[in-house]
């Protein structure tokens, strides 16, 4: 599956890079743009399952197993997004899952 993590600067944090881009836009005639904030997108390819899921033993039905797996993946992505991908002191993040076409 594919997961995207969007990381943005908090509103309270000045974004000098965005300001410079906004000024460049205004200078080149795009003066209807009044603010630019630069964000990052992390595109993650996810295969397999998190270690926290434990073993496959037991008699899970396939759909129960899949639901547990998805829950574990979401929890783990949420965790590392806040630990590494974003620094919560200056940034916020948002996670998006992409539908697989199969």
């Amino acid at each position: 599956m594919k997961v995207k993590v969007y990381v943005s600067l908090r509103e309270s944090v000045l974004d000098p890079q965005g300001q410079a881009i906004c000024e460049a836009l205004n200078r080149t005639g795009y003066d209807f743009v009044t603010d630019v904030r630069v964000s990052k997108v992390f595109e993650l390819e996810i295969n397999g399952e998190p270690k926290t899921l434990g073993t496959k033993s037991g008699i899970f039905k396939a759909e129960i197993y899949d639901a547990k797996k998805m829950k574990a993946i979401r929890e783990q992505v949420e965790k590392f997004a806040g630990e590494l991908l974003a620094n919560p002191i200056i940034e916020t993040f948002r996670i998006e899952e992409e539908e697989e076409d199969d």
Binding site: P16, N87, I89
Partner: peptide
């Protein structure tokens, strides 16, 4: 040290870039 949260706050891009 700020990333490790041993010190408070963060260091971001210089105002002048």
């Amino acid at each position: 040290l700020t990333e490790a949260q041993l010190l408070p706050g963060m260091l971001v891009r210089n105002r002048s870039l």
